[in-house]
Nucleic acid binder design. Structure first.
Lengths: 208, 208
DNA sequence: ATCGTGACCATATGCTAATTTGGTCACTCG
DNA sequence: CGAGTGACCAAATTAGCATATGGTCACGAT
């Protein structure tokens, strides 16, 4: 085991050949089943049947059912992250990048919530149980956030006194009500104004 | 029914004579039982026996078991609020009042979590289910927060451009990770530094 | 060797029946 | 008339069991 604990592995719980046609088939089947019936109501025997192999064979590729859940969850979160990164790239100023980062995350998460409730529940569970997929996602968001802030400091748009780590972790915490799936659901009413208010608050705090 | 919806009534669900010796006995018994066995494992028959009256008599004072839970919960939250107000009063500057308000809330909440886990669970449930007791508590915190900010604006310690309502609700949201019982439990590791960081972030944002 | 599986086990889950529990009401007693 | 209650009911909870499910392994096929 050479797993890096400090940098959660999104491919945790995987086994056997890393890129194998069957692995992808399992993931595709799992995505479809989890979305239609939910993680709990899907049995690994169902997935086995869907790909046309025996249940035991599934375990050549994943250590456990939860590992499959991880993979699907990581995929969902990855889609959100990709959209967020795209939104960030569209913006020119660090301020605007900052806004778009969190707006995109909330928008995409809300979309998932309404369109694929069952996958959203999986992601919510991943977050509350602190699965590697969720931790990895948060780490990616924080990395992106840090880059934006550093950029803003270079351009003189943001203040430079506060230690960058402190700023980042504080912002991640302050935005938790919109990042953590369960909280997002809880704070749905009031969106998107409530989020804008918090973003404005933080941006005022970043002002030089 | 003349219940004011916009200003949640902490005494919601009560019935009969408002100040009656028996009512207080019920509350005391409920406090003891909920703390020892939990809300779920306590039956209203237990409370009736503890007070020495019949179960039916309990319902002369409370509309439901949940109403009794509300009362106990409101009592817990009130203790936190009292401690927080005392801490605020000890401080001179608005900045320090601000720090103490949220520090005291977190400290007291954490105390409750460790010392009276079962009552804490009741409060957590109250928050997630948005019972009037929890809403009333949040309203009181926000009121106190508003007063501190207004004071800071008067003394010139805080900026005056941002609409006060926007500032307040944004801060309440940003502090949610330490206010909402479930989130507090989730964010226990890293305390109290993580909270200090968010408080610092907000204070920077409040700077004129 | 590599790909693949049926048979197997301990635990989790679903299900039904029996019991508790929250809540009401007509009623008694002083 | 007001303080207080036993008897009662629908809905929730529990207990106990049959089944399903997650997971492994020795083994066969190619």
């Amino acid at each position: 085991m050479t797993t890096d604990i400090s940098h959660p592995d999104p491919a945790a719980g995987q086994r056997g050949p890393a890129d194998h046609a069957i692995r992808q088939q399992i993931i595709d089947a799992a995505d479809a089943h989890f979305a239609r019936f939910g993680y709990g109501k899907t049995t690994v025997a169902d997935l086995a049947k869907a790909v046309g192999f025996s249940k035991a064979y599934i375990y050549k590729f994943f250590e456990s059912k939860q590992a499959i859940g991880e993979a699907i969850c990581a995929q969902c979160l990855d889609k959100i992250m990709v959209a967020a990164l795209a939104a960030v790239d569209e913006a020119r100023t660090p301020t605007e990048k900052f806004r778009r980062l969190f707006s995109a995350i909330t928008t995409k998460s809300t979309e998932l919530l309404f369109q694929e409730k069952l996958l959203y529940d999986l992601a919510a569970n991943s977050a509350t149980e602190q699965w590697p997929s969720a931790l990895g996602y948060l780490a990616r968001v924080e990395t992106t956030l840090r880059e934006i802030i550093l950029l803003g400091r270079e351009t003189g748009e943001f203040e430079r006194k506060t230690p960058i780590d402190e700023t980042c972790s504080a912002i991640m915490l302050a935005m938790q009500p919109f990042m953590h799936p369960l909280l997002l659901e809880f704070n749905l009413d009031g969106l998107p104004e409530s989020q804008t208010r918090v973003i404005n608050l933080i941006l005022r705090s970043l002002a030089p």
